[in-house]
Write a protein that binds this DNA or RNA. Structure first.
Lengths: 130, 130
DNA sequence: TTTAATTAGTTTCCAAAAGTAACTAATATT
DNA sequence: AATATTAGTTACTTTTGGAAACTAATTAAA
Protein backbone atom coordinates (compact mmCIF):
# COMPACT_ATOMS: atom_id res chain seq x y z
CA UNK A 1 0.00 0.00 0.00
CA UNK A 2 2.94 2.28 -0.39
CA UNK A 3 4.24 3.66 -3.59
CA UNK A 4 7.93 3.53 -3.11
CA UNK A 5 10.57 5.58 -4.83
CA UNK A 6 12.98 3.44 -6.81
CA UNK A 7 16.01 4.54 -8.78
CA UNK A 8 14.82 7.05 -11.28
CA UNK A 9 17.08 9.26 -13.30
CA UNK A 10 19.87 10.12 -10.93
CA UNK A 11 18.02 10.61 -7.68
CA UNK A 12 18.68 8.69 -4.55
CA UNK A 13 15.93 6.70 -2.93
CA UNK A 14 14.93 9.00 -0.10
CA UNK A 15 12.05 6.88 0.97
CA UNK A 16 9.43 9.29 0.00
CA UNK A 17 6.43 7.06 -0.20
CA UNK A 18 2.83 7.90 -0.60
CA UNK A 19 0.14 6.00 1.17
CA UNK A 20 -2.35 4.46 -1.18
CA UNK A 21 -5.92 3.45 -0.52
CA UNK A 22 -6.04 -0.31 -0.17
CA UNK A 23 -7.87 -1.77 -3.10
CA UNK A 24 -8.20 -5.54 -2.82
CA UNK A 25 -11.17 -5.70 -5.20
CA UNK A 26 -9.55 -3.49 -7.80
CA UNK A 27 -12.26 -0.89 -7.70
CA UNK A 28 -11.42 1.21 -10.74
CA UNK A 29 -12.37 4.54 -9.22
CA UNK A 30 -10.21 3.79 -6.20
CA UNK A 31 -7.39 2.86 -8.55
CA UNK A 32 -7.86 6.13 -10.40
CA UNK A 33 -7.76 8.09 -7.18
CA UNK A 34 -4.56 6.33 -6.18
CA UNK A 35 -3.05 7.80 -9.32
CA UNK A 36 -4.59 11.23 -9.70
CA UNK A 37 -6.38 11.74 -6.38
CA UNK A 38 -4.42 14.76 -5.25
CA UNK A 39 -4.30 18.48 -5.79
CA UNK A 40 -1.54 18.71 -8.36
CA UNK A 41 -1.28 15.71 -10.67
CA UNK A 42 -4.08 16.72 -12.99
CA UNK A 43 -2.89 20.30 -13.09
CA UNK A 44 0.59 19.19 -14.08
CA UNK A 45 -0.80 16.91 -16.79
CA UNK A 46 -2.92 19.76 -18.10
CA UNK A 47 0.07 22.11 -18.26
CA UNK A 48 1.98 19.54 -20.27
CA UNK A 49 -0.86 19.04 -22.73
CA UNK A 50 0.61 21.10 -25.54
CA UNK A 51 4.32 20.63 -25.16
CA UNK A 52 7.12 19.54 -22.93
CA UNK A 53 8.14 21.98 -20.24
CA UNK A 54 11.17 22.49 -18.12
CA UNK A 55 11.01 22.20 -14.37
CA UNK A 56 11.15 25.95 -13.94
CA UNK A 57 8.48 26.56 -16.57
CA UNK A 58 6.15 24.21 -14.74
CA UNK A 59 6.93 25.96 -11.49
CA UNK A 60 5.96 29.40 -12.77
CA UNK A 61 2.93 28.21 -14.72
CA UNK A 62 1.49 26.42 -11.74
CA UNK A 63 2.43 29.39 -9.60
CA UNK A 64 1.49 28.40 -6.10
CA UNK A 65 3.09 24.99 -6.13
CA UNK A 66 6.26 24.69 -4.09
CA UNK A 67 9.39 23.31 -5.71
CA UNK A 68 9.49 20.48 -3.24
CA UNK A 69 5.95 19.36 -3.97
CA UNK A 70 6.48 19.80 -7.69
CA UNK A 71 9.52 17.55 -7.48
CA UNK A 72 7.66 14.98 -5.40
CA UNK A 73 4.70 14.92 -7.77
CA UNK A 74 6.84 14.67 -10.87
CA UNK A 75 8.76 11.77 -9.40
CA UNK A 76 5.58 9.93 -8.58
CA UNK A 77 4.11 10.65 -11.99
CA UNK A 78 7.28 9.39 -13.63
CA UNK A 79 6.99 6.20 -11.61
CA UNK A 80 3.38 5.89 -12.68
CA UNK A 81 4.29 6.27 -16.29
CA UNK A 82 2.41 9.51 -16.78
CA UNK A 83 5.37 11.76 -17.51
CA UNK A 84 8.84 11.34 -18.89
CA UNK A 85 11.82 13.18 -17.51
CA UNK A 86 14.67 14.10 -19.81
CA UNK A 87 17.77 15.56 -18.29
CA UNK A 88 20.54 17.26 -20.27
CA UNK A 89 24.03 17.53 -18.88
CA UNK A 90 24.33 21.24 -19.51
CA UNK A 91 25.13 24.17 -17.30
CA UNK A 92 22.88 25.45 -15.99
CA UNK A 93 20.99 22.16 -16.00
CA UNK A 94 18.05 21.56 -18.30
CA UNK A 95 15.38 19.05 -17.45
CA UNK A 96 12.30 18.60 -19.57
CA UNK A 97 9.08 16.89 -18.68
CA UNK A 98 6.57 15.57 -21.17
CA UNK A 99 3.48 13.38 -21.15
CA UNK A 100 3.58 9.73 -21.99
CA UNK A 101 0.86 8.20 -24.13
CA UNK A 102 -0.88 7.19 -20.93
CA UNK A 103 -0.64 10.71 -19.57
CA UNK A 104 -1.89 12.18 -22.82
CA UNK A 105 -4.99 10.02 -22.68
CA UNK A 106 -6.00 11.92 -19.58
CA UNK A 107 -6.28 15.22 -21.44
CA UNK A 108 -9.76 14.77 -22.98
CA UNK A 109 -11.06 13.67 -19.61
CA UNK A 110 -9.57 16.72 -17.92
CA UNK A 111 -11.14 18.91 -20.59
CA UNK A 112 -14.52 17.52 -19.68
CA UNK A 113 -13.80 18.14 -16.06
CA UNK A 114 -13.00 21.74 -16.87
CA UNK A 115 -16.25 22.06 -18.76
CA UNK A 116 -18.05 20.60 -15.78
CA UNK A 117 -16.49 23.05 -13.37
CA UNK A 118 -17.09 26.03 -15.64
CA UNK A 119 -20.67 24.99 -16.01
CA UNK A 120 -21.15 25.70 -12.41
CA UNK A 121 -22.74 28.88 -11.31
CA UNK A 122 -20.35 30.67 -9.02
CA UNK A 123 -21.48 29.49 -5.67
CA UNK A 124 -21.19 30.95 -2.24
CA UNK A 125 -18.67 28.38 -1.20
CA UNK A 126 -16.18 29.97 -3.55
CA UNK A 127 -16.08 33.14 -1.59
CA UNK A 128 -12.92 33.78 0.28
CA UNK A 129 -13.60 33.50 3.94
CA UNK A 130 -11.09 34.63 6.56
CA UNK B 1 -8.82 30.89 -0.12
CA UNK B 2 -10.53 28.96 2.60
CA UNK B 3 -13.67 27.00 2.23
CA UNK B 4 -15.50 27.71 5.41
CA UNK B 5 -18.15 25.67 7.13
CA UNK B 6 -21.39 27.55 7.49
CA UNK B 7 -24.58 26.41 9.19
CA UNK B 8 -25.63 23.26 7.50
CA UNK B 9 -28.33 20.97 8.76
CA UNK B 10 -27.89 21.04 12.51
CA UNK B 11 -24.13 21.06 12.88
CA UNK B 12 -22.19 23.68 14.67
CA UNK B 13 -19.55 25.62 12.81
CA UNK B 14 -16.41 23.94 14.07
CA UNK B 15 -14.20 25.94 11.79
CA UNK B 16 -13.14 23.10 9.69
CA UNK B 17 -11.85 24.88 6.64
CA UNK B 18 -9.91 23.54 3.76
CA UNK B 19 -7.18 25.44 2.12
CA UNK B 20 -7.81 26.00 -1.55
CA UNK B 21 -5.34 26.67 -4.32
CA UNK B 22 -5.46 30.36 -5.10
CA UNK B 23 -6.95 30.85 -8.51
CA UNK B 24 -7.01 34.53 -9.51
CA UNK B 25 -7.21 33.78 -13.25
CA UNK B 26 -9.97 31.22 -12.84
CA UNK B 27 -8.01 28.43 -14.36
CA UNK B 28 -10.68 25.77 -14.86
CA UNK B 29 -8.49 22.82 -14.01
CA UNK B 30 -7.42 24.50 -10.81
CA UNK B 31 -11.05 25.18 -10.03
CA UNK B 32 -11.85 21.53 -10.64
CA UNK B 33 -9.07 20.43 -8.36
CA UNK B 34 -10.33 22.74 -5.66
CA UNK B 35 -13.55 20.77 -5.81
CA UNK B 36 -12.54 17.18 -6.45
CA UNK B 37 -8.76 17.22 -5.97
CA UNK B 38 -8.63 14.83 -3.08
CA UNK B 39 -8.73 11.14 -2.45
CA UNK B 40 -12.36 10.69 -1.52
CA UNK B 41 -14.73 13.08 -3.27
CA UNK B 42 -14.84 11.19 -6.55
CA UNK B 43 -15.16 7.87 -4.79
CA UNK B 44 -18.12 9.14 -2.80
CA UNK B 45 -19.78 10.53 -5.92
CA UNK B 46 -19.24 7.21 -7.66
CA UNK B 47 -20.83 5.30 -4.79
CA UNK B 48 -23.87 7.52 -4.95
CA UNK B 49 -24.26 7.08 -8.69
CA UNK B 50 -27.13 4.60 -8.54
CA UNK B 51 -29.03 5.60 -5.49
CA UNK B 52 -29.01 7.54 -2.28
CA UNK B 53 -27.14 5.94 0.57
CA UNK B 54 -27.13 6.33 4.31
CA UNK B 55 -24.05 7.50 6.14
CA UNK B 56 -23.32 3.99 7.38
CA UNK B 57 -23.82 2.45 3.95
CA UNK B 58 -21.28 4.84 2.50
CA UNK B 59 -18.88 4.02 5.33
CA UNK B 60 -18.94 0.28 4.66
CA UNK B 61 -18.89 0.62 0.90
CA UNK B 62 -15.86 2.84 0.93
CA UNK B 63 -14.35 0.59 3.56
CA UNK B 64 -11.08 2.26 4.46
CA UNK B 65 -12.47 5.75 4.95
CA UNK B 66 -12.69 6.89 8.55
CA UNK B 67 -15.99 8.22 9.85
CA UNK B 68 -14.42 11.57 10.60
CA UNK B 69 -13.08 12.03 7.10
CA UNK B 70 -16.32 10.79 5.59
CA UNK B 71 -18.20 13.38 7.62
CA UNK B 72 -15.77 16.12 6.63
CA UNK B 73 -15.95 15.26 2.95
CA UNK B 74 -19.72 15.02 2.90
CA UNK B 75 -20.00 18.42 4.58
CA UNK B 76 -17.73 19.97 2.02
CA UNK B 77 -19.52 18.30 -0.86
CA UNK B 78 -22.82 19.52 0.50
CA UNK B 79 -21.41 23.03 0.63
CA UNK B 80 -20.21 22.62 -2.94
CA UNK B 81 -23.62 21.53 -4.10
CA UNK B 82 -22.54 18.06 -5.10
CA UNK B 83 -24.55 16.08 -2.58
CA UNK B 84 -27.74 16.61 -0.65
CA UNK B 85 -28.13 15.54 2.95
CA UNK B 86 -31.53 14.47 4.19
CA UNK B 87 -31.93 13.82 7.86
CA UNK B 88 -34.93 12.07 9.42
CA UNK B 89 -35.82 12.58 13.04
CA UNK B 90 -36.05 8.89 13.83
CA UNK B 91 -34.37 6.68 16.35
CA UNK B 92 -31.86 5.44 15.54
CA UNK B 93 -31.17 8.38 13.28
CA UNK B 94 -31.37 8.09 9.54
CA UNK B 95 -29.44 10.36 7.24
CA UNK B 96 -29.41 9.89 3.50
CA UNK B 97 -27.03 11.35 0.98
CA UNK B 98 -27.73 11.71 -2.71
CA UNK B 99 -26.21 13.43 -5.70
CA UNK B 100 -27.40 16.76 -6.94
CA UNK B 101 -27.73 17.40 -10.65
CA UNK B 102 -24.26 18.90 -10.56
CA UNK B 103 -22.89 15.85 -8.78
CA UNK B 104 -24.57 13.51 -11.21
CA UNK B 105 -22.94 15.26 -14.14
CA UNK B 106 -19.61 14.02 -12.82
CA UNK B 107 -20.54 10.38 -13.27
CA UNK B 108 -19.83 10.03 -17.00
CA UNK B 109 -16.50 11.72 -16.48
CA UNK B 110 -15.62 9.36 -13.65
CA UNK B 111 -16.59 6.44 -15.84
CA UNK B 112 -14.05 7.56 -18.38
CA UNK B 113 -11.48 7.91 -15.70
CA UNK B 114 -12.17 4.35 -14.64
CA UNK B 115 -11.76 3.20 -18.22
CA UNK B 116 -8.50 5.08 -18.39
CA UNK B 117 -7.16 3.48 -15.25
CA UNK B 118 -8.28 -0.02 -16.24
CA UNK B 119 -6.61 0.45 -19.55
CA UNK B 120 -3.34 0.53 -17.79
CA UNK B 121 -1.16 -2.51 -17.70
CA UNK B 122 -0.60 -3.36 -14.06
CA UNK B 123 2.64 -1.62 -13.41
CA UNK B 124 5.36 -2.23 -10.92
CA UNK B 125 4.45 0.87 -9.03
CA UNK B 126 1.30 -0.86 -7.87
CA UNK B 127 3.19 -3.43 -5.88
CA UNK B 128 2.89 -3.15 -2.19
CA UNK B 129 6.17 -2.10 -0.80
CA UNK B 130 6.89 -2.31 2.93
C1' DT C 1 -35.36 -2.32 35.03
C1' DT C 2 -30.98 -2.31 34.14
C1' DT C 3 -28.61 -3.73 29.79
C1' DA C 4 -27.75 -3.96 25.04
C1' DA C 5 -28.35 -2.45 20.24
C1' DT C 6 -28.62 0.87 16.64
C1' DT C 7 -27.03 5.00 13.89
C1' DA C 8 -24.74 9.21 12.80
C1' DG C 9 -21.95 11.35 14.01
C1' DT C 10 -17.92 13.73 17.63
C1' DT C 11 -13.53 13.95 20.13
C1' DT C 12 -8.86 13.31 21.08
C1' DC C 13 -4.73 12.26 19.62
C1' DC C 14 -1.27 10.85 16.18
C1' DA C 15 0.62 10.19 11.19
C1' DA C 16 1.14 11.78 6.71
C1' DA C 17 1.16 15.16 3.16
C1' DA C 18 1.83 19.85 1.67
C1' DG C 19 4.19 24.16 2.12
C1' DT C 20 8.25 27.62 3.23
C1' DA C 21 12.57 29.35 2.88
C1' DA C 22 17.17 28.85 2.72
C1' DC C 23 20.76 26.19 0.61
C1' DT C 24 23.70 23.53 -3.08
C1' DA C 25 26.28 22.04 -7.37
C1' DA C 26 28.20 23.11 -11.70
C1' DT C 27 29.53 26.05 -14.84
C1' DA C 28 29.39 30.79 -17.68
C1' DT C 29 29.47 35.55 -17.57
C1' DT C 30 30.79 40.09 -15.84
C1' DA D 1 36.50 37.12 -7.41
C1' DA D 2 31.69 37.81 -7.56
C1' DT D 3 27.20 36.99 -9.77
C1' DA D 4 23.78 34.53 -12.39
C1' DT D 5 21.37 30.45 -13.80
C1' DT D 6 18.69 25.99 -13.13
C1' DA D 7 16.97 22.04 -10.90
C1' DG D 8 16.66 20.54 -7.48
C1' DT D 9 17.56 19.36 -1.83
C1' DT D 10 17.23 20.07 3.26
C1' DA D 11 15.31 21.14 7.52
C1' DC D 12 11.45 22.65 9.38
C1' DT D 13 6.34 24.05 10.11
C1' DT D 14 1.54 23.81 9.01
C1' DT D 15 -2.40 21.45 7.32
C1' DT D 16 -4.82 17.43 6.29
C1' DG D 17 -5.98 12.65 6.95
C1' DG D 18 -6.73 8.74 9.93
C1' DA D 19 -7.62 5.35 14.19
C1' DA D 20 -10.15 4.45 18.00
C1' DA D 21 -12.94 5.38 21.56
C1' DC D 22 -16.95 7.99 22.89
C1' DT D 23 -21.90 10.17 22.78
C1' DA D 24 -27.04 11.04 22.31
C1' DA D 25 -31.53 9.33 21.74
C1' DT D 26 -34.53 5.75 21.74
C1' DT D 27 -36.18 0.96 21.19
C1' DA D 28 -35.71 -3.86 22.19
C1' DA D 29 -34.22 -7.58 24.90
C1' DA D 30 -32.88 -10.08 29.43
Amino acid sequence: MYLCQRESSNQKVTHMARKLIENPNDCPITHSMNIIGNKWTSIIVYMLADRKLRFGELAVRIDKISRKVLTDQLREMELRGIVVRESYAETPPRVEYSLTEKGARLIPILNQLCAWSKDIELDLADEKVR
